[in-house]
Design a protein around this nucleic acid. Sequence first.
DNA 1: AAAGATTGACAGCTCAATCTTT
DNA 2: AAAGATTGAGCTGTCAATCTTT
Lengths: 153, 153
Amino acid sequence: MTISCRPAVPLEDLAHAGPDEGTVAAIMEAAGIIERRLESVLEGVGLSISKFDAIEKLIQAGEPLTLGDLASELRCVRSNVTQLVDRLEAEGLVKRGACPNDRRAVRAMVTPVGVERHAAGVTAIRGVQAEIARRLGAGDRAALTKLLGRVAD
Amino acid sequence: MTISCRPAVPLEDLAHAGPDEGTVAAIMEAAGIIERRLESVLEGVGLSISKFDAIEKLIQAGEPLTLGDLASELRCVRSNVTQLVDRLEAEGLVKRGACPNDRRAVRAMVTPVGVERHAAGVTAIRGVQAEIARRLGAGDRAALTKLLGRVAD
DNA sequence: AAAGATTGACAGCTCAATCTTT
DNA sequence: AAAGATTGAGCTGTCAATCTTT
C-alpha cells in the first residue's frame, strides 16, 4: 500500500501540439483523476492522503519511528513531518514518545484509533484500485504498467 | 500547452499486493517524475507550474481575463487566483486592471515581461516533453496514450 | 439576493534559522 | 561541529466570511 502524489488538473490544451504533448498530458490527467478519487474515498474515512501515508509507514515499520526516519520513508523534509505529526497527534491517531537511545529524537507511534482508521483507509483504497483495474483489462493492465516503466529514470 | 498536477512521491510498496496495485502505483509514480522534472526546468526560468499555467491561460485568451474567468480556466477557486495574481503582479508578470463592463470585476493582463517569461517556459517544457517522447518509441507513445484514456471518466 | 473579489484561517509542502543533545 | 526536532516565513491550494456592485 501507500499512495502519494499531489492533486492534478487540466492540461487539455493539446491545441497546436507537436506529437509529444499528448502523452505527458495523458499521464498527468490520469494521475489527477486517480488522486482525486483517492482523496475522495479517504475523506469518507476521515483521512487525507498525507495522513494515510504517514500511518501506513509507521504500521509497516512495526515499531515507533523517529520523525527523521519517518520523513525519509515519506520522502519529504523533516519539518513537514513535524507538522503532519502535530495534526495526527491532535486527532489522536498517532502519539509522540521519547526515544530510548537518543534524547534528541522523538518517536511517533500509531494509536489503536490510528490502526482502525488505517484499516478503513486500506479498504477504501483497494476499492479504487479495483475500479481502475476493471476499466483496463488484465492484459492492458500489464501493458500499461510496462510502458509507464519506461518513463521512469 | 498547460501543465498542472501537483508533486508526487513513492508508493513503491507493492508488497503483498493484489494484481491491481501495480498499475495505480505506476501511473502516480510516472506523473510524479514528470512533474518534478517540469518544476525543475521551470524553476530555471523563474516560474512555478502554477504561475506558468496562469500566464498561459491569459495568453491563450488573447485579452485580459476576469479573475473569476481565470479561476474557471485554471479549474480552481477564485480566492486562489486572487493570491496567485498577487504574486504574479508583485513580480511584474501580470497587471490588474478595471473591467469596463462590470465595476465589480478585476481583469488580469500579461505584461511584456510576462510574455517573455512564458516563452522561455514553453521552450523548457517542450524539452521535457521531447525527452519523455524519446524514451517511449513513437508507437509506444500512442499505445500508452490510448491505454491511459481508459482510466479517464 | 446574487455575482465580483478579497480576506482570514487552515492543510500541505519547502527552505532557512534556531535550539537541544550528541 | 553535526544530527535530532522545531519554528517562522513563503507557495499553493481549500473553504467560510465579508464587502462592493449589479
